[in-house]
Every structure is written in structure tokens, then in C-alpha cells.
């Protein structure tokens, strides 16, 4: 079969890009353990408090080890429950030092919500009956707004919070 020279160049370019893309994705998936943020663990959406992570006293920020934190959240229409502070006021801001590793664990009591820490790689779908997790290293200092990015109803825009990296 005769192929034009340009055709050969283009085909080589196309196949080489495809191989590079697949290698990068394969590296992320099999060596670095990148996987979808949910569907791995299930939960009873009508009784999320039964799960250890979502007991009222376990919500919000906890330091597990030096530089390692976990944040447990229950999403519902139209709120993110990060627990309460010393004055029994609902927590809206999570403060962690720069370079810390933070594991976000979140579930929904009612409908599908989103959980995105805008400006970071933390971006998950939050489905009722499922637990979503994402571990991120907070490399950059700053204030990052938490938003719900799955339209969940009339109060969708009222679902927000903040992560402050200092």
C-alpha cells in the first residue's frame, strides 16, 4: 500500500501521542494509585451517623499524624456539615498548614452533591449511599473556596465553605 509521506508523518504523530497519553494515565493509575473518588465504599444514606467517620463528634478536621489530617463531612441539602467548634457554632473554615496531606471523606444524606475545593485537585461527586474520598497535598498557600458543583436544588448556591492553607 502506498502512503504519502505527509500521511506517514501524521500517523506517526497521532500514534506516538496516543502511546504517550496512555503511558501517563497508566502510570497515574497503576503506580500512583489514582482512582475514581467514589463507588468503592457504600453506606446507608438514612443512617450515616452509624459510620465511624460521620459520627457528629468525628466531623471536621482531625490531625492524625504529623502533617497528616483528615476532614470528614456530611453533605445535605443545602449544607456541608464540618462539625461544630468550641462555642457550638458550625465550622465553615478548615485551616491546615502548607504542605500537609489532607484526606477528605464525604457522603450525602439526600441527593447528589459536589465537593470541590476550587483551585486544588480536590473535586468529587458526592452520592447518597456512597463514600467519596480524596487525599491531597496542600502545596500552595491561600484561601480556597469549597463549592457544590452538582446542581442539587433551590439552595445549591448556599453550599460552601473554605479551606485556608497557611
Amino acid at each position: 500500500m502506498h502512503l504519502h509521506k505527509y500521511e506517514k508523518v501524521w500517523l506517526t504523530f497521532g500514534m506516538a501521542s496516543l502511546i504517550i497519553f496512555l503511558l501517563v494515565i497508566g502510570f497515574a493509575a497503576f503506580w500512583k494509585g489514582t482512582h475514581p473518588q467514589s463507588h468503592l465504599e457504600t453506606i446507608d444514606q438514612n443512617n450515616v451517623e452509624a459510620h465511624d467517620s460521620f459520627k457528629p463528634e468525628n466531623l471536621g478536621l482531625t490531625e492524625v499524624a504529623d502533617g497528616k489530617y483528615k476532614v470528614n463531612i456530611v453533605a445535605s441539602a443545602f449544607n456541608y456539615d464540618f462539625g461544630v467548634d468550641k462555642d457550638e457554632k458550625p465550622v465553615k473554615t478548615i485551616r491546615v498548614p502548607q504542605g500537609s496531606t489532607v484526606l477528605f471523606t464525604i457522603t450525602s444524606k439526600d441527593v447528589v452533591h459536589g465537593f470541590q475545593v476550587a483551585g486544588t485537585n480536590v473535586n468529587m461527586m458526592v452520592e447518597p449511599g456512597h463514600i467519596s474520598r480524596y487525599e491531597a497535598v496542600m502545596k500552595n498557600k491561600g484561601e480556597f473556596t469549597i463549592v457544590c458543583n452538582e446542581y442539587c436544588g433551590i439552595g445549591h448556591h448556599q453550599m460552601f465553605g473554605k479551606v485556608e492553607v497557611y
Binding site: Y6, W10, F13
Partner: peptide, 19 residues
């Protein structure tokens, strides 16, 4: 085919660049 080739390579680099 020269123009076609140039356009298709521009498109190719745009795709790789976006990725």
C-alpha cells in the same frame, strides 16, 4: 497536500498542548 498537512499538524499540536 502541503496546506492540508500544515493545518492538520497545527491541530495536532493544539490537541497535545491542551492535554
Amino acid at each position: 497536500l502541503k496546506g492540508t498537512f500544515i493545518m492538520v499538524m497545527i491541530l495536532g499540536f493544539l490537541m497535545v498542548g491542551a492535554w
